[in-house]
């Protein structure tokens, strides 16, 4: 299963786990199965329309899904998905 890195603000929902496994062939499916394992997680990451929130970046390995196919981005068993809050410049 793909692994998902959980950012600090969401670890309260994952029992402090930093990396979790979640099944799915696309980002949307992975987020769905994450929400089943850790109820409430998806609504933190996605808005009412199911779109990834404005201040959240989701990466598959090192690529931002906004440069791929957003929610429809395919994921492989060995992929690492990261959820990263947007941060300010320098």
């Amino acid at each position: 299963m793909p692994s998902v890195r959980i950012p600090t603000p969401l670890r309260k929902l994952t029992g402090d786990l930093e990396v979790v496994q979640a099944a799915g062939a696309t980002i949307s499916e992975v987020l769905q199965s994450l929400d089943q394992a850790f109820p409430g997680l998806k609504e933190r990451i996605c808005d009412d329309q199911g779109q990834v929130r404005r201040f959240v970046n989701v990466f598959v390995n090192d690529e931002d899904i906004r440069f791929l196919e957003e929610g429809a981005t395919p994921v492989k068993e060995t992929d690492e998905i990261s959820i990263v809050p947007a941060i300010a410049g320098g």
Binding site: L10, I45, R53, F55, V56, A86
Partner: peptide, 11 residues
């Protein structure tokens, strides 16, 4: 030392 909202990731 926190920077994002726990609920919607807003700054």
């Amino acid at each position: 030392a926190i920077h994002v909202c726990d609920f919607d990731f807003g700054p």
